[in-house]
């Protein structure tokens, strides 16, 4: 890239504010996380005892942590698979030339503005064991009154559903944008070639949409792992019986409730590994077929 302005110092000054924030609040603390994960830290933070990798050994042998891992993977996997499939279906429909399609679109994307905590509060209302409409419907249908406050697997299913619901709007926005980026001529050409509606979708639209799908896969994974803290804290606080104790929540409890700083930092590092894997995937795929154009 050629320089349009001959100034030497100016570009550094322009980057400086961002750089300071990134270094001070992101990079240095992340490195410290690595460092702390090798220690046992006394509750008041004044004594550091070197433990090497033993925090990690403890972590991976801890049934509570393994439970948390499994629950997190179910939680995130559900958000990604179910959430993306439903949103893609809805986006495809809302991309058809229908009367009132703008209203449909707006009606589909607004959940994006909801916070995880708001979603959690509303879903807590829906499934309230004594007054919730979902409780009522289930009882009408099956004769059983569910109590998600006491049934762990149900609780996990419900927080997962709430988290998926909240993300639908975001996904639909990006799918719609991606669909609008698919060149019409290609679909028309496929039509001329005798491809039916479904073939056109699977053979033309879907492959061309893969960058969007992949982008959303990454964003939904990050959401599932990192951004749902508020939802859990409002609905279940990780309960009942650690059934919804996903990784972020456990990290928070160990770091800020039980003050096991080193142990919490080791958990941070495990989360970092997940992000690193996602990032590597992104770079790998970004260079290849995910980007058709």
């Amino acid at each position: 890239m050629e320089s349009r302005f001959p100034n030497r110092l100016l570009p550094y000054l322009l980057v400086l504010p961002s750089l300071v924030v990134v270094l001070v609040f992101l990079i240095v603390p992340s490195i410290q996380s690595f460092y702390l994960s090798l220690f046992r830290v006394s509750p008041f933070g004044n004594v550091l005892i070197f433990k090497g990798l033993r925090n990690f050994v403890t972590l991976l042998g801890d049934p509570a942590y393994l439970n948390s891992l499994i629950r997190s993977f179910f939680f995130t996997g559900f958000i990604v698979v179910v959430g993306l499939s439903v949103s893609l279906g809805l986006a495809v429909l809302a991309n058809l030339p229908l009367a009132g399609v703008d209203i449909y679109r707006t009606a589909l994307i607004w959940p994006f503005a909801l916070s995880p905590a708001v979603a959690g509060t509303i879903w807590a209302l829906l499934v309230d064991p004594s007054t919730g409409p979902i409780t009522y419907l289930v009882e009408r249908a099956t004769g059983m009154r569910i109590n998600w406050m006491t049934n762990g697997d149900l609780a996990l299913l419900i927080v997962t559903a709430a988290a998926t619901w909240k993300m639908l709007g975001y996904n639909v926005i990006f799918f719609l944008a991606g669909l609008q980026n698919v060149p019409k001529e290609l679909l028309e050409a496929a039509h001329m070639d005798g491809a039916g509606t479904f073939q056109r979708f699977w053979k033309v639209t879907f492959p061309l949409l893969s960058p969007t799908t992949f982008f959303l896969f990454i964003m939904n994974s990050l959401y599932g792992f990192f951004e749902v803290f508020g939802l859990i804290d409002v609905m279940t606080q990780g309960g009942p019986g650690k059934a919804t104790d996903i990784l972020v929540y456990k990290l928070y409890e160990d770091g800020f409730v039980n003050f096991r700083t080193g142990y919490a930092s080791a958990q941070s590092i495990v989360l970092f590994v997940f992000v690193a894997i996602l990032t590597i995937l992104q770079f790998r795929f970004a260079g290849r077929k995910v980007f058709y154009r």
């Binding site: 792992f225 990290l251 941070s268 970092f272 990032t279």
Partner: peptide
């Protein structure tokens, strides 16, 4: 330039939970 660019992009890789304890202490 490339290094600075990567440093800023890296924000994506470092969500709060990864650095929560040290950031809090800072």
């Amino acid at each position: 330039k490339a290094t600075l660019f990567i440093l800023i992009l890296i924000t994506h890789m470092l969500p709060l939970p990864i650095r929560i304890v040290p950031t809090f202490e800072l």
